[in-house]
Simulated assay, not measured.
Amino acid sequence: MAERNVNKGEKVLVLGAGQLGTAVLDFLIPAVTRRNGSVSVIVSPGSLDQQSNLLSDDHQRLADSGATFMAVDVAASTIESLKPHFAGFDTVINCMGFIAGAGTQIKITRAVLEAGVRRYFPWQFGVNYDVVGKGSGQTVWDEQYDVRTLLRAQRATEWVIVSTGMFTSFLFEPAFDVVNLANKTLHALGSWETQVTVTSPADIGRLTTAIYLQQPRIVNEVVFVAGETTSYGKLAETVERVTKQTFAKSVFTLPALQEELRLQPDDPMLRYRVAFARGEGVWWPMSETWNARHNLPTQDIASWLKTAI
C-alpha cells in the first residue's frame, strides 16, 4: 500500500495537549492531514477563556495547523458523558496522563470501549506494567495494570500500547531528586547498577505517529521504544562529562526508600523513587526497541542534557 493511503481519511482524537500531547500533535497533525484525515483535541475547560479562545500559544499554533480543540472536564465526567465525545472517532490517542486523578484512566478506557472506537492508544507511555504488576509502591501504576487487563478482555477495539520508560526530563526534575543540576547532587535509585529506560517527549511524539501509521497496522500489541537505556552509574558519568562538573553522589537504597514511604505514604515522588528503585519492568535493551529495529535514531541523555543546560 502506498504511504499516502495509509490510514486515509481517519478521524483521530487526542486527549490532552500538555507536554506529551503537544509533542504527539506536532507530528500527528501533518501526517493525518496529508492523508485527508482530521485531528481533534480534548483539553480542560480552563484552557479556554470566556470567549472560547485558546489561552496557550502552543494550543493556538496546533489549532492553526489544523487541529480542532474541544473543552471537556474529563476528571468530572462520567463514562456515560464521555462516550458521546469519543463516538465516531477511528482512533483515540490518550495523552492525558495522571493529572486528572485516580480512576481516570480506567474511566476513559471504559468510555472508549463503550463508544465503539476502532483503535485506542491508552495512556501507557511509561514502564512495562506487565512486569511491574501491582504493589510497586506507585498506586497509579496499579491502575495502569488494570487498564491492560480491561483492554485484553475484549476484541471489539484494537489497542496499541507504546512503552517509553521515563520521560528523559523527569531524571532532572529537582523534586524527583535523581539529578539535581542546581545543587550538583546525583542519587542512584536502588544501586548504581540499577537500570532505567528514558525517552524524550519529542521522540515519543515522533515514534507514536510512526507506530500509528505503520503498515500492516499494529494490533493489540505492546511496542517498546527508547531514547536510551542506562544504569545510574553510567548516568552519573554522562552528567559529569556533559556538564564538566563534579556531583556529590549517593544511593537511595530500596529498603531506605520503603521505610521513608511507610512514614510518608502520600508522597508521590517517594512512590516513584520506590517503584524505579525496584528496577523491574522499568528498562529494556535498546537493541530490542521498535525504533532500533526500524533504524530510527533517538535522542540520548547526553544530547538532551546539552540542550537543557
Rank of each mutant, 00 (worst) to 15 (best):
Y212S: 01
V32H: 09
L305M: 04
A175M: 05
T307E: 12
I99Q: 05
S81T: 13
G97M: 06
I301A: 08
S65Q: 15
E143P: 14
A226H: 07
A308Q: 11
G21Y: 06
V160Q: 04
E221P: 00
S47Q: 10
F247Y: 15
F86C: 01
L254Y: 07
Y145H: 11
T139H: 15
E173L: 06
A248V: 10
V282M: 01
Q144W: 11
E259F: 14
W283E: 00
L54R: 12
K107Y: 14
T229F: 05
Y145C: 00
T197P: 05
L235D: 04
T104N: 10
G9K: 11
R155T: 14
S191Q: 11
Q264F: 01
P84M: 04
E221D: 10
L62V: 07
V131H: 06
D300E: 05
G97C: 12
F89E: 02
F125N: 00
S44Q: 13
I106C: 04
P122E: 03
L113G: 10
R61V: 06
K11I: 02
P84G: 04
Y129C: 08
V12Q: 04
K249A: 02
L48I: 07
P297H: 05
V251K: 07
S250L: 11
S200R: 03
L25R: 06
G165E: 00
G205I: 14
T199R: 00
M70P: 06
A236H: 13
M96C: 07
L150E: 03
N220C: 14
L305Q: 02
G190H: 15
D49H: 15
A71G: 03
L207G: 08
A210V: 03
S44Y: 14
N291C: 00
K11Y: 09
L151D: 11
